[in-house]
Design a protein around this nucleic acid. Structure first.
Lengths: 221, 221, 221, 221
DNA sequence: GATGAATGAGCCTTCATTCAT
DNA sequence: GATGAATGAAGGCTCATTCAT
């Protein structure tokens, strides 16, 4: 699914943009409603109201509620993947730099918003017995995890560590996930800064010469 | 969990049961239904069917669906707390022993069942905008986390480590939680053994002289 | 149906009294519940609770809710009839005295209580399509009305008035009824005294030499 | 009462109707159902069936059963008030003429229909513990009564009578109400003509030079 | 007799979906 | 394309009635 791509200048006004714009508008509204009301209380009427559109339009653009929710999850998963992919591309090539960029990506304000965290949480909670949700919620992390594992292996090979790559990667990933959940459900949530510091502390536990609570240690690559 | 009285073989299930036994039976049925269908698809009719009772009885004992679900969550939270409390009491007094017992407790087959993991997940997903759920889901971990923090501090003081107690405790907790989530949502879930090993690996990252992937290192207290 | 008759002293404890006492207790509770909640919200559970008895007892003594309500209405109608019958018997034989007694009877504190007025009102409102209710609600007034008519006719014959007996009787009756309704539904209800004065004023309009707002004019028979 | 647009002969009933027309249609259906079944047995399903619509539509237009009934009562009260207001405006200015018009208004075939009488009765019976019903049922008569009182006072002042204005007005009002109740509940109800004659007889009792059973005496103003 | 758990019919309500305009 | 009225299935809830104890 295409994320919002502003048309290149000089393009003739694309005929399909209104259509995609409407879809995007509805998906964003869905995320907001789910964040505020939870999955079970998300109704098409409320989604339409939030988007400022009429009730009937939702079924016109998405043939059913099920498809609307599925495409919303797809959108979130794709957005999440793009975010860390771009973070990796923008970082230096060394393993510590890549690892640092990957972990920081989870806290990019673009995706680490209360509404998005809530929406993820809601989909997670309803994944039982819904193969499509399970697949996407799983896929979100699976690929991320593979890259993490490869980077942990490189840390061992290139920098002389002896961490168990799979388990270290898994711990780093679930620490990041756990920070998200904490930020959602804790009665007095701590800030993104503390969450980031905690993730970096986990990295430091495995790769102490390259990481500390502040992130990548200056002068290290 | 054992219900009040196992019926003698060939006895028909008793028509009338004391109040608490029925309530427990209905709560267990609710956990099972939520595990199989998710929060949004959990209906009183299905809960009653699973328990082999009429749906009117659910409202007779729990007044409303909302209260049934609230009491189910309360039951899970209390069961969870009892489990690690008892584990601590049954362990030796040293910090490493207590820490080990606390972490193992999360994987006690009594509470670490697919149905219970799923049910927790469902409640978590629907905690948005429901203060009672948030409170209980938060309280589940808050107390556990405090004990973890104290134990990490003791590891520093009594065994010469220098871990950041709050962050270390947080990482150990979310690693355990993350294992639960993985066991739920991963398309090809790994076993409890690997989950336990991962948690122990996290402990080993902070307290390497006392823990390794196998748990508490033999001969250490 | 027998009204509450305390057994004469020295009677052996009658075996059937507990039964009738229970029935009476439940009927009184029904009147109170109907007064407080209205017909549509009157439930057997609440009636039993008000009577301080168990739920199942209601159906044991009255085979169904319908019969409980029917017997309650019967009880009210009989009580009403007894009240004015006794009032007539206790009054002097002259037409003005009888008329005065009959009209006063409606405001006897024994039957003119808030709960009873409310209950009557509720039965009245639900008489549609229920022949039994219509019959009783109608019969309550029909006999009373016949006596009133006869007395009006006697006032004409014996005291030289020229009122239309049927219409005068009807007006006196509905004035009395109207006072009941007013006392029920008016937001700031006036007192029984004013209600009585109003009824007597109506009588005075037809029989001015014998009645005024204060009732039967002293010295007149 | 005429609904918005009588469909042309042979036209199928229109599938979509403006908002207010549907609401009116449903309110009329509610009055009919209440008249036939009483308050307690009035169900949304039956109201919808009577209107020839789906039951979902009732809640679409009225949010809840409670609101449907409240708006029905509001509609009846407003209709009642309009009826006598218009009757007063259409009558001559003298006190006897106004009084006559006011009393006759209650028997205008527009509002004095079996269904409307029954519906009023049902609301009355259920007014206990429902402040909104009490307010409306009371307000229905309170204003009417004030006008009646003022007219009785004018009869005294302008035509030399000495009636107690409040009590005379009250008696005239409850006589009118009583006729309604009789027409509802009497097993063999008498006709509207007799009811009107009775009300006029009551007026004649207080204002004999201007009224008799036939109404306003010809030649009198 | 008495109790209260258990049942199930019927109701109100919500809401995804359809469709005439 | 867009709107919102209309439909009907499905769920929660109430409550009269039954019945084992």
């Amino acid at each position: 699914m295409a994320l919002a791509e502003p048309p290149a200048p000089n393009d003739p006004p694309p005929r399909k943009l209104p259509r995609d714009a409407r879809r995007l508008q509805l998906i964003e509204a869905t995320i907001e409603v789910m964040a505020g009301a939870g999955y079970a209380r998300t109704t098409l009427t409320e989604v339409a109201r939030r988007a400022g559109l009429s009730h009937g339009l939702v079924n016109f653009h998405f043939q059913s509620k099920e498809r609307l929710l599925a495409e919303t999850l797809l959108y979130l998963a794709e957005e999440y993947r793009q975010n860390w992919t771009e973070a990796l591309e923008g970082a230096g090539p060394s393993a510590p730099e890549q690892l640092h960029a990957l972990m920081r990506a989870d806290f990019n304000p673009r995706i680490c918003t209360p509404a998005r965290l809530s929406a993820w949480c809601s989909f997670w909670g309803e994944a039982q017995g819904r193969p499509f949700y399970q697949e996407l919620c799983g896929a979100k992390d699976a690929e991320y995890n593979l890259v993490l594992e490869a980077l942990c292996a490189r840390m061992n090979a290139e920098h002389g560590y002896a961490a168990h790559p799979q388990r270290a990667a898994r711990i780093l990933r679930v620490t990041s996930e756990g920070m998200w959940l904490d930020m959602m459900t804790m009665t007095s949530p701590y800030a993104v800064d503390e969450a980031t510091a905690t993730v970096m502390t986990a990295a430091a536990a495995f790769f102490p010469r390259h990481f500390d609570a502040g992130g990548l240690i200056v002068g290290q690559r």
